[in-house]
Amino acid sequence: MSANECINSFSSHLFWDVRKEDIDMEQYSKYIIKRVLEYGMWNDWVIIRSYYGLPRIVEEAKKMRDLEPRALAYVAAISNTPKNEFRCYTYQQSIPKHWNF
């Protein structure tokens, strides 16, 4: 699947704030992977996994400063990678939020 086909196949709610025509799958890979992990549907996950491959997704996720706990748990579980290898797991706010849900 080409990059344009991938971009057009994503759910419409993922990139509501940008024009899909301006997204480059290689240049903005970290942005795309983060959006799909946090807000994507199953089909979106299948698209990025077939385009990037699991090793690249894991490497990009390891570099992210913040990632939702559910997304982190999913990537760690599916790749058999310990959570403490992810930057978002070790790099947390020094001042906790007021309402900790």
Rank of each mutant, 00 (worst) to 15 (best):
M1I: 07
A3Q: 11
N4Q: 13
E5R: 05
C6H: 00
S9K: 11
S11K: 09
S11R: 04
S12I: 03
H13C: 10
F15G: 01
W16A: 02
V18K: 15
K20N: 14
K20G: 08
D22G: 05
D24H: 01
D24S: 06
M25C: 05
Q27T: 00
Y28G: 03
S29V: 00
Y31L: 04
I33Y: 01
R35D: 01
V36K: 00
E38D: 07
Y39W: 14
Y39V: 00
G40A: 08
M41L: 13
W42S: 07
I47K: 03
I48V: 14
I48H: 01
R49A: 05
R49S: 10
R49D: 01
S50I: 01
L54C: 06
P55E: 11
P55F: 02
V58G: 01
A61P: 05
K63W: 09
M64D: 08
R65S: 11
D66N: 13
D66G: 06
D66C: 03
R70M: 09
L72P: 06
L72G: 09
S79N: 09
S79P: 13
T81M: 05
F86W: 07
F86M: 04
F86Q: 02
R87N: 08
C88E: 01
C88F: 02
C88Q: 04
Y89A: 12
Y89W: 14
Y91R: 10
Q93K: 13
S94T: 10
P96M: 15
N100S: 12
N100Y: 06
F101S: 07
F101M: 12
